[in-house]
Amino acid sequence: MPPAPAAARLMAESGTSVEAGSGKRGQVLKEDVLSAIKSGAAAPAPAAPAAPRAPVATDDAAREERVRMTKLRQTIARRLKDAQNTAAMLTTFNEVDMTNVMALRSTYKDIFEKKHGQKLGFMGFFVKAVIQALKDIPAVNAEIDGTDLVYKNYYHIGVAVGTDKGLVVPVVRDADQMSIAGVEKAIGALGRKARDGQLKIEEMMGGTFTISNGGVYGSLMSTPILNAPQSGILGMHKIQERPMVVAGKIEIRPMMYLALSYDHRVVDGKEAVTFLVRVKEAIEDPQRLVLDL
């Protein structure tokens, strides 16, 4: 019989396959998948055959270097392609004026670091802004399970982290119950574990929405790929000063492009645009985050 929904989701996220479980009539349960992952006994999920490579001239082939893909890179490649093949993926864009949140950060960053032992970045503000937007537009925090839509009334926010071995997405669980300081601490701790290769598989599972910050590498605009089975991912980008018209006058403002990629099977265009506007409004008026408005 088919695996339990939680087990099926975990196998899809981890790229593993468990044939027989401990449930009734051999049904695979979530505990079976976790046990198999920890013991290293889970078989890799079958990968779709790659298209054959075009012939290469002999002289060119002699100057190439062939390196075996790591297991992590193979899993990343498979999951991204699966997401692209499954979801009706679309991206909508907006831009956000970072003036106020940058001023707030500049004013309190030293006090914040002294009190919490953690630098104050922008990710904490964006996580809280995203959660407010998810509460307003619950479809972005939903996923498809067969013929059902599953609306999640919890907020486990994945934060993409680049490492030497590839991109991983640790999850800040129940981020809605944390302060901005709590979110920053959680992200800092998970980021260090990711870069040290110490992340546990459980710490990358169960996310309901993902944030990816390509701006730290200089990206001005991009279309992020969904982190399946989630229905939305927010792409942050480089902050760049641009001339903007403010109250009829041209002013230089620090602007950031935002991109929301979403699964159009779950999220309508109006909902996606509204979600991104909610994020923009919260970041441009960060006091709203403190007052939960």
Rank of each mutant, 00 (worst) to 15 (best):
M1G: 13
P2C: 05
P2M: 07
M11E: 13
A12W: 02
E19I: 13
A20K: 13
R25T: 13
K30N: 08
A41E: 15
A41H: 11
A43N: 11
P46H: 04
P49H: 02
A50N: 04
P52D: 12
P52E: 14
R53V: 15
A54Q: 14
V56N: 03
E65F: 01
R68D: 15
D82H: 04
N85W: 00
A87N: 00
T91W: 08
T92E: 13
E95C: 11
M102I: 12
L104V: 15
S106Q: 13
S106F: 05
K109A: 12
G117W: 09
G124K: 05
F126T: 11
K128N: 13
V130T: 15
N141D: 15
G146V: 12
K165P: 13
L167D: 13
P170S: 01
V172W: 02
D174K: 02
A175W: 04
V183W: 04
I187D: 12
L190P: 11
G191H: 06
R192T: 15
A194S: 06
A194I: 09
D196V: 05
D196Q: 12
L199F: 09
M204G: 07
T208N: 02
S212W: 02
G215F: 04
G218A: 05
L220H: 05
L226H: 03
N227H: 02
Q230G: 04
G235C: 06
H237L: 01
K238I: 08
R253L: 04
D268F: 01
G269K: 00
F275E: 07
F275C: 01
A282Y: 05
P286Y: 05
L289Y: 03
L293Y: 07
